[in-house]
């Protein structure tokens, strides 16, 4: 039985009716073929209508759908199983919330890296809900450097509710680990493609998000804070999450319009989880398309363009400079 989100209730109801109609047909000799056809058409249309008009908050919900495919599923599908997971940061431990390794995409080796969420309660805990510790970011960096050494491109999958805010994470320098990745990714000699496949929460997402091409799946979000936390800080209540989701302009469409990402990958009708095979294929096609172009470019040129892209992000205004005295008077604090 698939999981339905609150706004998907109309679809759930129709599917219920469809099941009933089918069981009637099985049990009795009544011909309900037209009813079934009609219901199937209705389901398609309702899904289409709902998904074409998702609110930002509803997209956040879809991005967290429990049936949504996670990083390792993408890697397995894209490499056709020709993937070797590599572990550890060579320093503290192996972070289960961050996975990576070499894989072959139609014969060409790619370094895949991404945050990994769990598929059931036990696995969610094992994966720390996709929230990496510093060793996760350092493992990611180690793998990127490995890719650089052997001149293989890097593809990262972003799906995290944030970097883990724990005691040990602070002791081992969560901030430093993320910061180091931002700096090193800026200068990495090989092509980097980053794809947000679920949640893109703040520095925890950006820590593997500095790339030549940064893409978002249609029903994902990317921002400086989750709508819930934003609501709790600015409205002092968790209840304004829908308002916060709209205010943050965190959808793929908004991010592209603000020139903060490079492209959107369209999801199948009903979201990525409705047809995983189709989204895997689309993501693979996008990766190959962009890698083809990026590989042709000279590495110095590619780095220059990468830095320039991030350097021009922002929105500010200039005022006519009024004369401001710089002489300090030792003012009181």
């Amino acid at each position: 039985m698939p999981t339905f989100l609150d706004f998907e209730q109309p679809i759930a109801d129709l599917i219920d009716q469809l099941e009933q109609a089918k069981s009637i047909e099985e049990k009795s000799e009544v011909n309900v073929k037209t009813t079934i056809k009609e219901l199937e058409r209705k389901i398609r249309n309702t899904t289409k209508e709902l998904y074409e008009n998702l609110t930002p908050w509803q997209r956040v919900q879809v991005s967290r759908h429990p049936d949504r495919p996670y990083t390792l599923s993408y890697i397995e599908a894209i490499t056709g199983g020709e993937f070797q997971e590599l572990h550890g940061d060579r320093n503290v431990k192996d972070d289960k919330a961050m996975v990576g390794g070499f894989g072959a995409v139609d014969g060409e080796t790619v370094m895949f890296i991404g945050q990994q969420k769990g598929i059931n309660t036990k696995m969610r805990q094992y994966r720390n809900f996709g929230m990496p510790n510093p060793e996760g970011y350092r493992k990611a960096l180690r793998l990127m450097k490995l890719a650089e050494k052997f001149n293989k491109p890097v593809v990262t999958f972003i799906d995290t509710p944030g970097a883990f805010p724990g005691l040990e994470a602070e002791e081992r320098g969560q901030g430093e680990a993320i910061a180091r990745n931002l700096l090193e990714m800026s200068q990495l000699q090989v092509p980097i493609i980053c794809i947000v496949i679920g949640e893109g929460a703040s520095g925890g997402a950006l820590g593997i998000g500095v790339g030549d091409k940064v893409l978002m799946l249609e029903n994902t979000w990317y921002s400086v804070i989750s709508p819930e936390s934003c609501s709790s800080i600015l409205w002092r209540s968790w209840e304004q999450k829908e308002l916060a989701a709209s205010a943050l302009k965190l959808t793929a469409k908004d991010m592209l319009a603000n020139k903060l990402i490079d492209g959107i990958i369209k999801e199948p009708l009903g979201g990525a989880h409705a047809n995983p095979l189709e989204i895997f294929e689309r993501v693979k096609v996008e990766i190959q398309k962009h890698l083809g172009k990026l590989k042709e470019m000279d590495s110095e040129k590619r780095i220059e363009r990468r830095i320039k892209k991030f350097s021009t992000m922002g929105h500010y205004e200039t005022i006519e400079t009024v004369h401001v005295p710089v002489e300090d008077t030792g003012s009181e604090v």
Binding site: A179, E184, M255
Partner: peptide
Amino acid sequence: GARMMEAAFSLMQMAKTSAKLSMLAK
């Protein structure tokens, strides 16, 4: 930290400043 009222714009300033610093390091 980052300024929430500029959402992803402020997030990207982290990448921006770090990218610039990588040039200084180089």
